[in-house]
Design a protein around this nucleic acid. Structure first.
Lengths: 152, 152
DNA sequence: CATATATCAGGTGCACTGAAATGA
DNA sequence: CTCATTTCAGTGAACCTGATATAT
């Protein structure tokens, strides 16, 4: 058996599913997830590692709670996530002197450098996902999804 | 603390993410998942229970492997899934006399009846997800996602 | 022999809950 | 006292792998 079952597209799903947006959104998300996981995985990263690095890079030093809020990642999961990144030397955690409940998370030079490399991988994964669409269609899809996601 | 963190929309994600389709596809899928999970959960079902019922209802008696292929669900997970549905009396499993490796999975009357009720819940969850979009935009989104998902 | 099916045992990433310790 | 932050311990669903027994 060399089946592996993974990455095998489902064929002819029931019309009750192929009539819904939820179905396609779910399938598309799975594909997106597999693409980015595969690309980032080669570098030893997962998607939230990238998300955290991106957040800290763009926002400057932040607290764990703030990063989690921006990304929609649970405060609880942030602990391990930042643990990974810190022990790899990509971020630095230090207690905030002005509010000693908080941790100030800062990206290191190694982190910034790594982030640039990851950008290329994420871009490639995205291009792969959107391959069937023209540039105009990609913009359109992005706009529609934005409206769905940013709904009250 | 009554925080609960769940279902809290992330605000102001970094532009590295908000520029990608993967990001919005992922967020939309999470929201879709939460909607359906919440709606179906009230009836004691999960999304794959619904998917399996829908498949068997539309295809007629099928094998576990075939159902899994249609849905993109792993053969391994189908076992437990069908176990749930069978012990609840919604499907029936019997060895196929013409090929004794296979199980013939059939939907029961109770299953058909339950499926109709679940249809309404799934529809409601979908409407909730697509609330920000006009009917024309919903069709457009569906078409774009279809192209992405049904890519080679 | 090779292939397909159902099943079991297990691993991993992710979303989430609840509680504890600390401090504002 | 209330609220926010970090941390830990643990659950649950979904995705995936590998192996086994059985039958084609």
């Amino acid at each position: 058996m060399q089946d592996s079952d993974a990455c095998v597209q489902p064929t002819d799903a029931p019309s009750r599913l192929t009539g819904t947006a939820s179905w396609y959104v779910g399938r598309a998300a799975l594909r997106a997830q597999q693409n980015t996981h595969q690309h980032l995985g080669c570098a030893g990263f997962r998607k939230w590692h990238y998300g955290v690095l991106a957040t800290v890079a763009e926002l400057g030093p932040s607290t764990q709670a703030e990063i989690g809020r921006r990304l929609g990642v649970d405060r609880s999961d942030m602990v391990a996530l930042l643990g990974d990144l810190e022990s790899a030397g990509y971020v630095h955690r230090e207690p905030d002197p002005t509010d000693r409940r908080r941790n100030r998370v800062t990206i290191t030079d190694a982190g910034k450098q790594q982030l640039v490399e990851l950008d290329a991988l994420v871009l490639a994964a995205n291009d792969q996902l959107l391959a069937p669409l023209s540039p105009a269609e990609r913009t359109q899809l992005l706009a529609l999804l934005r409206r769905v996601v940013e709904a009250p």
